[in-house]
Amino acid sequence: MKKADLEAYRQRLMLLRARLCGDVSALAKSALHGAAEQGGAASSMPIHMAELGSEAFEQEFNLSVMETEEDAISSIDAALRRIEEETFGTCTGCEGTIPKMRLNAIPYAPMCVRCAEQEEAH
């Protein structure tokens, strides 16, 4: 892959990483704020059981999104390492070339579509 292409992907990955880190930070603050409210003054306590369930669901949802985004950040970090090691764009499964169309859609993709499908099937 050309150096200009690698630099363009590196920039995209860095921007995506920064955005996801901001999202994770905001979700963590939201989860902490919700936990502080539940342990705080009685006036902030939900009155109905349904409200308690809604708050628990929202907190679980936020934690799930945080986990997914943290996984994406780890994948982005791995892609940035592959750029430094000059192996970016090479499938970690078959060692073939990952098509640019796939890298444009998922710039941190470590595998070609065929290998990714095979891994998901197992």
Rank of each mutant, 00 (worst) to 15 (best):
Q38I: 08
S43P: 01
H48Y: 09
E55C: 01
P46L: 00
R10K: 15
V113D: 01
K2I: 01
A72Y: 02
E84L: 08
I83A: 03
T90G: 05
C94K: 01
F61P: 09
E7L: 15
L103Y: 05
G93W: 01
C21V: 15
A56C: 07
S43W: 04
K100V: 06
I73P: 06
A35W: 05
A50D: 05
L103N: 04
Y9H: 15
S54L: 09
A105H: 09
A35C: 11
G89V: 08
Y108W: 15
A31K: 04
V65R: 13
A26C: 07
E67Y: 08
E86S: 09
L32D: 13
E70N: 15
A105E: 07
S64H: 11
P107C: 00
E120R: 09
R19M: 01
T97L: 10
A116F: 08
P110Y: 02
G93R: 02
A8H: 10
G40F: 05
T68K: 15
L16M: 15
T97A: 12
D5K: 14
C91N: 02
G22H: 00
K2S: 14
E55L: 03
P46H: 08
S64L: 15
Q59I: 02
Q59W: 02
A50K: 05
T92I: 09
M111Q: 15
T92V: 15
A116K: 11
E58V: 06
C112Q: 01
F57H: 13
P110S: 06
R81M: 11
C21D: 10
